[in-house]
Structure formats: structure tokens, C-alpha cells
Design a protein around this nucleic acid. Structure first.
Lengths: 111, 111
DNA sequence: TCTAATCGTAAGTGCTAACTTACGGTAAGT
DNA sequence: ACTTACCGTAAGTTAGCACTTACGATTAGA
């Protein structure tokens, strides 16, 4: 969750989705230093979103599809429950109104 | 995204999913002050996750199911693409492995 | 108009985390 | 063994955010 909350980490994830990469390669394509990327990768690794393996002096990071599925499932469940709950309540309230019209109000605030 | 990244905001959303509430009511059930809730509601409103309407001196906030659907769709698309992309790449690499090894290329960075 | 109730906003504070520089460690080549 | 390449981590700095207190604005009632 926190893992995908940061923009840089999402950029890293996007890169890794295309193909596994070493830390230096990732840093070269991002506006942050190599240690910063390394630290982000640590967070992603703790979140089980990436895996790493050593190849010579380099460390290749790759997306862990299993972790992606888990995070995705978590959020899908969250949103689904949210919508389901809302739908149920809206339905109950509609019955309670029993004939009263439902109106969506717009705040009209421009920003 | 940022909107649901904070725990307090998620708590507010959970409360609002049960039924629309005024700011004071929300604050009374949370361990933060009323202004804090008000600021969180501002973020949720900017994210189109809640709507508000004035009732007397009170302001009633409610979940905007349309916004919830949009945010949900955004993330579902994100994760789906991620998994789809990964699957495609994994498949391609599997074919490549069938004939030759896959080697990561290095490009010297200036440091 | 005066008072009570409710809310948003401004100003200021504390904590988290993202970032950089500096350093040490490991692997490969000569 | 020496050098080069690549990386993770520690230490320190800085920016952002969540929170609180203080204040002004709006609405309802007498």
C-alpha cells in the first residue's frame, strides 16, 4: 500500500514491469540517485512486490507477480465492499423514503 | 490514491459508507479534532470521493459512488495492465530461453 | 441585532520519509 | 594482490503532511 503510494516507486515499478533491471539502470532513467532507488527497492521488496537476484556485481530486480496479485486483490476487495455497502444503504434509504425522489447535489465548486 | 493513503481518511470513508454525516459527528467518533476532519474531507472532496451539502448550519458529507467507481477503475486498470504486461514479458522470455539466454546489458553511468 | 451552533481556513508545530553524500562490502578482471 | 564495477547502508538534511489552536464566516432562532 505504502509501496505504491510514492510516485518514484511507481515509476520504478513501471520500469520493472517492462523488464527486470539492475539498480544502476533504474537510477539512470530516474531523477534520483542510485541509493534512493536502492532504498525504494527495499520498500518494494518488503511489500513483496519485487524480487532480486545477484548476477555478477549487479543485482537484478524484477516484479513479483504474486505480490502484485495480492495487493490488487486487497484493493479490489476494499473498493468492492465500499460500493456494496453503499449500494445496500442507498437501497435501504430508498425504501425508507418510499416515494420521495433522490437527488444528487452538485457543489459547483470550481476548485 | 493519496486520498485513501491515510488511515484517518479511510476511517472517515468507512463511517461515511454507513451513512452520511456532519463534520462534528465524524470528529466525535475519531481521535482527531474537527478541523483535522474538515481538512481530510477537503482532500476526499478534491478526489471526488465525497460530496457535501449544507443543511442548516451543518454540512453533511456523503460518499460519492461515482468517484469510488472511478478510483477503483483506475487502480484495477493499473494492476491489470501490470499483470498483463508481466505475463506477456514472461511468455516472451520463456520463448527466448528456449533458444538462447537472456543477458542484461550494462551502460556506464557518469556517477 | 444579539446569541448559539456549526463549519472552513490560516498559522504554527512535530513527525515521517524521501533524498543526497560518504563509506564499506562483494564480485569479476588482469 | 590490485583495480574496477556495482551495490547496500549509515548519517544528516530537507520537504511534506497530519495535527492543533485561534479566528472569521454562515445559518438559525429569539
Amino acid at each position: 500500500m505504502d509501496a505504491v503510494g510514492d510516485g518514484t516507486r511507481r515509476a520504478i515499478l513501471e520500469r520493472l514491469l517492462e523488464h527486470p533491471s539492475a539498480v544502476g539502470e533504474l537510477a539512470a532513467g530516474l531523477p534520483v540517485s542510485r541509493p534512493a532507488v536502492s532504498q525504494h527497492l527495499r520498500v518494494l521488496k518488503q511489500a513483496r512486490l519485487v524480487t532480486d537476484r545477484q548476477v555478477g556485481t549487479r543485482r537484478i530486480y524484477a516484479v513479483d507477480p504474486q505480490g502484485v496479485r495480492e495487493v490488487r486483490a486487497y484493493w479490489e476487495r476494499f473498493w468492492s465492499q465500499a460500493l456494496a455497502h453503499f449500494k445496500a444503504v442507498a437501497d435501504t434509504e430508498a425504501e425508507q423514503r418510499a416515494g420521495s425522489g433522490h437527488e444528487e447535489k452538485s457543489d459547483g465548486d470550481g476548485g
